[in-house]
Design a binder for these strands. Structure first.
Lengths: 218, 218
DNA sequence: AACGAAGCGGAGAAAATCTCTCCGCCTATT
DNA sequence: AATAGGCGGAGAGATTTTCTCCGCTTCGTT
């Protein structure tokens, strides 16, 4: 692949990530094009339709997340710090986008499912290690972790997004939330229900229109 | 006002709240109409243009928030619990919508500013009481509180929203995050920077196009 | 350094979506 | 039971979005 083509491809994927995150997975591809600073033809040449773009985006992001999880495990001795490191990396990767878009416009076929399983396994490793070390509340599951990441790493709506132009606010709020997930000395006022598993998230996300390419009916 | 008209009005406001929250303040009014289950004419008769709708929505929401803050103060002795009660109430009111929409499509004129000031004052009362009682980290400001509420009370994107059909997940995650805001025994790993004030949020939100009716240029 | 192949952006046609109004029927209130 | 006020649906016009064709530019190679 030619160098300029690879560059365009990456710019498009990055732009798509941001745009889908901000405006939902039905955002006009035109907006992606504008954000990427390329011509429409360039997008359509590389990705024949919306699904191809989404699939590439999600696959790319999952691979990076897996890598981030493994990097975090290697880099930190304390399992809680490793988890924390990963969560921050995931926010930087705008992990929200993968999940947002993942099961809305995509059939999770064999290949994608395999990539996803790899990611989930890697992250579960971090989570369980932190929990087993007593550094994390027992009632926090993968589902909770994922959903908190999605919620906290989404860009703020509208003009508010400017508040966090450099992303430091996201990290601050992640730290605040992580402090809430950490094993606390006992005075937790509400919360303690049962942990939310990843499978439950998947199941819910697949619901609306039978895992069809473009499920979703209002 | 006739009873059926009042009912329609409320259905439209509730629908607008959800739709703006999910799809941003530029969401088609058509979508509001569909969600509300009324005819288009009903919306346009009551609210001549988008701004009228947004203004009514925001005013209504701010009034309810103020009421919720006062109710929480009355209902709980412990200031931390009062704050917690308010935050949960705010989530139920989908407080996010007010902020999302507030400074994007609206000039905050005299009347609206007054209503907003009332709300901010009431909530600041709760926050400061909790902080003075030593139940809250000192580095948590109104801005942090508002932004956490916005982030956590937004509906989950796309199909994921089904996960939290009854809203119980929001409350669970709010509790987790609140635990992070509570005064902790010292082992907070990251976070502690300076508190984010409400004024900073307002300032950022007002930025994009000079407080014009429809500011915002890409 | 110069050639050929691959890639790029812009203009714009066709399709889809959104805004907003007219009008005949229905429902609250007296 | 009368009447004023309200309601929903159909649809015209404007706007937005999708997607393609084509002439110029850039990359990789000889």
């Amino acid at each position: 692949m030619r160098a300029d083509a690879a560059r365009s491809r990456r710019r498009i994927l990055d732009a798509a990530c941001e745009v889908f995150l901000e405006r939902g997975p039905d955002a006009p591809l035109d907006a992606v094009v504008r954000r990427a600073g390329v011509g429409p033809a360039t997008l359509y040449r590389r990705f024949p339709d919306r699904e191809a773009l989404v699939r590439a985006l999600v696959t790319d992001l999952l691979a990076r997340l897996t890598e981030a999880a493994e990097e975090a495990r290697r880099a930190e001795d304390d399992p809680y710090l490793a988890l924390r490191r990963f969560v921050h990396a995931a926010a930087d990767l705008r992990m929200g986008a993968a999940i947002v878009v993942l099961l809305e416009h995509l059939v999770v076929d064999g290949e994608l499912a395999a990539v996803r399983r790899g990611t989930v396994t890697a992250v579960e490793g971090l989570l369980h290690a932190a929990r087993d070390a007593g550094r994390l509340r027992a009632d926090v599951g993968m589902g909770d972790l994922v959903l908190l990441c999605v919620r906290l790493s989404r860009p703020l709506p509208g003009a508010l997004a400017a508040l966090d132009a450099d992303g430091s606010l996201v990290h601050r709020h992640l730290d605040l939330a992580l402090a809430g997930l950490a094993a606390a000395p006992g005075d937790q006022e509400g919360a303690p229900r049962r942990a939310l598993g990843f499978d439950e998230v998947i199941a819910a996300a697949g619901r609306p229109g039978e895992p069809g390419p473009t499920g979703v009916a209002e």
